[in-house]
Design a protein around this nucleic acid. Sequence first.
DNA 1: ACAAAAGTGTTAGAAGTACACCCATGT
DNA 2: ACATGGGTGTACTTCTAACACTTTTGT
Lengths: 235, 235
Amino acid sequence: MTSALAEFVVGVDNVIFSVDTDANRLLVLLVQRQHWPFAGEWSLPGTLVRHGESLEAAAYRTLAEKICVNNLYLEQLYTFGGPGRDPREADTAYGTRYLSVSYFALVRFADAQLIATGESRVQWFTVHSCPPLAFDHSMILAYGHRRLCNKLEYSPVAFDVLPEYFTLNDLYQLYSTVLGPNFSDYSNFRSRLLKLGILQDTQQKVIRGAGRPATLYRFDREAFAPLKDKPLVFV
Amino acid sequence: MTSALAEFVVGVDNVIFSVDTDANRLLVLLVQRQHWPFAGEWSLPGTLVRHGESLEAAAYRTLAEKICVNNLYLEQLYTFGGPGRDPREADTAYGTRYLSVSYFALVRFADAQLIATGESRVQWFTVHSCPPLAFDHSMILAYGHRRLCNKLEYSPVAFDVLPEYFTLNDLYQLYSTVLGPNFSDYSNFRSRLLKLGILQDTQQKVIRGAGRPATLYRFDREAFAPLKDKPLVFV
DNA sequence: ACAAAAGTGTTAGAAGTACACCCATGT
DNA sequence: ACATGGGTGTACTTCTAACACTTTTGT
């Protein structure tokens, strides 16, 4: 004897982070809702999954609708599917459920062009000063933020959003803006990273304003491959 | 212009682990399917989500239908929702999708009673010698196994499946059956755990066969509370 | 007496932490 | 010359891994 199955509409919501290293700000992309429910409020960019479309494809599509970006990291975050998380459920007598599979993304700030479609507003907010969000999106954001910190510490996501050639300082800025002020000091970060042997020293130097020229490095994917799934620590 | 939304049936599949420390075996619970598709093949225990039921509730229900257990740890694992993962999709012209939210559980082996309902078979398999699974369940199992190892190393899940009073050897057996042979040696494991200060030394001793009596410890939840979300290492 | 299980100690090396200091460039 | 950012070195502590050893029980 089985009771009635729930009917579902499945959506994807993205927590899209970006790091503005110049201004030392960790940003998250929010959109302002145009329609009921929560019209006028800010929320994570999301979409409903289409016929024949994979979840990940839906996540990429949402992302591509809001920003134009070439370099990013994306992975599934968590699925929120309890009853009562979307007011639209109440519409239908037998309450179709709105399930949200959330994805977490990190994109390169420099080449992320926001797409302004008509009157819908899309905007970066610093994570620590963003408005209360529609639905349960504040919770999703918090969850995503925790994941971002972990990912940065234990896997090489940073290299997905850095330019191909970067200085150790670029890398350090990225880490310290995300991980906050009580992050490791530069000198130790430096030696730890170099000791890992996954950074290729291109002999090139780059001069940015005053100061000694900085060495340009690149991420050495081949050297990293054997270290994959090993408990690497980048902290 | 939006294309057709996918329609979904949402299911929950559980990767239920248990550790038989006596026989040094890591076990996973499988059920033998009775009906099409994959009739006769083994799969993870799962269910479809009912009206008004949360995902987690569905996961608990599935678990309770197969085994009777009081002590367990359960958390969401991953969501698999691509098109084509369930042959039943092909039935309906407009292909209702079968989405699976997977959960991962660790249960206490000693008090886990398998529930044999009629002819449906439920059985423990050692993780390293289990049959090929229906659907994409082999992938889900692999994913769950990885998560189990991580959880054990970084969070105190072990104490959810150990009895309230346990010896350090009980704990060590649990860890080494899950984490395999090249796990830390007993002496180092011991001092690391004790140094964390989260084990309460009840002055009681227990004698099991020959050998010096072992001290009974209990997990000190209050002492652990402040260490929560800190990067603890139990390895 | 001896095996078996529990528990302690030691040591060499690696890794982490907090600094002080030197180097190359622009102004 | 000196401020600025890049880069090196060091002294100290803590962690890790491997292993030898002592203690308390049953037989």
